[in-house]
Design a protein around this nucleic acid. Structure first.
Lengths: 222, 222
DNA sequence: TCAAAAGTGTTCTCTTTACACCCATGC
DNA sequence: GCATGGGTGTAAAGAGAACACTTTTGA
């Protein structure tokens, strides 16, 4: 009990909603908690903000601890602070969401977890804390942002086919998109560079691979 | 020093960006600080989150303390947590913004302020803490949200003319809008109810007053 | 009677949608 | 040669932008 203050201070954590596309499904990374509260239940990865750590750095650290990955899209989502959301003490959590390219799926359990796994967003059951709500809000944000930004490319590897881009949109929006109209629109953004490489993928015509003109840059559209 | 924890806990505050329209300008409420740090400088109203208080309730309390007003539009903006943003100690702030109808402008200095005043957003000088950044982000959010929600009506009184609605849009967006197109669009939302009342306002034809069909409801458009 | 803001439709342009066939490959 | 996904254009409909005159009032 070394840290004392004249007024009560809440604990502050970050929780991460880490999205990826896996087997044509939008998935979220969850951990099985090693400790109470909600021991052995699934929950979002997260942890306490250290004394001299920026909250975004804290979120990046959590991400690195669970995935070993560093340079991915990360955005603050919302701050949740109901007084009773953690049974131990007052904990305010700043939720972030991250988008992981589908070719970078190595994961490992951090020290606070006995297991770590990808779950399809559509089939997540009851999580610890208020984490179902956090996942829902993250999913809404992701859907909304597809419409007015180029965020979807953050879920794709460096090289991708146009059909792969379309799949990402269809999976997140949950509806089919017309192929020709989609290609027209996505190419009109002037973000994509056609390469000379092709991908052979079964008994059909190979697809050209594209890359982003400016990787790591989210553009706003409309 | 009664509140002790085994790990360091940051202080958590809420800061409020309270917008209104005054004299055809977008304005923000600022307080002149009574105490250090940044004593006698202008800053956003805000305060510490109490032990058993939801953070949104805390923001509403701040709003009430400065304006006496309770039922206005309030939305969480962003959480700022750089370790050195407050010289006293580690303080993480959850920023909110509020929209005040232009007929409810009574304000009073709360106990932590020696003065309180409306400032035009366009002419705010250096504020305490990182509050200039917070105001900028709030203004960006407001501009963005005009486009895809009916948030603008939260800056208007219960009864208003169509020209007044248009002025709100023009002031926030900083550009003139075509009158006929604007009216067509705003009436197409099917949110407005024309009343039989008119407002006489100088040497010209009086304007019909409108009201919202569902006050307190923000609709998403597009 | 003059000045000032309220109120009101149509045309044109651009954007969005709907829709069908040939191509390159693996088996 | 046949099944599979890759790749391409045009026409119709809908949305957004441009634009000017009459009405009502107060002074």
């Amino acid at each position: 009990m070394k840290y004392c203050y004249p007024y009560p201070h809440p604990a502050v954590t970050t929780d991460m909603v880490i999205f990826t596309i896996r087997d044509s499904q939008l998935c979220v990374l969850l951990i099985k908690r090693r400790d109470e509260p909600f021991k052995d239940q699934w929950a979002l990865p997260g942890g306490f903000v250290a004394e001299d750590e920026d909250i975004e750095q804290c979120a990046m650290r959590e991400l690195r601890e669970e995935t070993g990955i560093d340079k991915v899209y990360l955005e603050q989502l919302y701050t949740f602070g109901k007084p009773d959301r953690d049974p131990r003490e007052r904990v305010i959590t700043v939720a972030y969401y991250a988008l992981l390219p589908s070719d970078q799926l190595a994961i490992r359990a951090a020290s606070d977890a006995v297991d770590v796994k990808w779950f399809e967003v559509s089939s997540i059951s009851k999580l610890g804390f208020d984490h179902n709500q956090i996942v829902n809000i993250a999913q809404q944000r992701l859907i909304a942002k597809l419409d007015y930004s180029t965020i979807a490319f953050q879920l794709l590897p460096d090289l991708f086919t146009l059909t792969e881009v379309q799949r990402v949109y269809e999976i997140i929006l949950g509806q089919a998109i017309d192929k020709r109209n989609f290609r027209k629109q996505i190419l009109a953004l002037d973000n994509l560079q056609k390469t000379k490489q092709q991908r052979r993928d079964g008994a059909h015509r190979p697809a050209f691979l594209y890359k982003l003109k400016k990787r790591d840059r989210i553009e706003w559209i409309r």
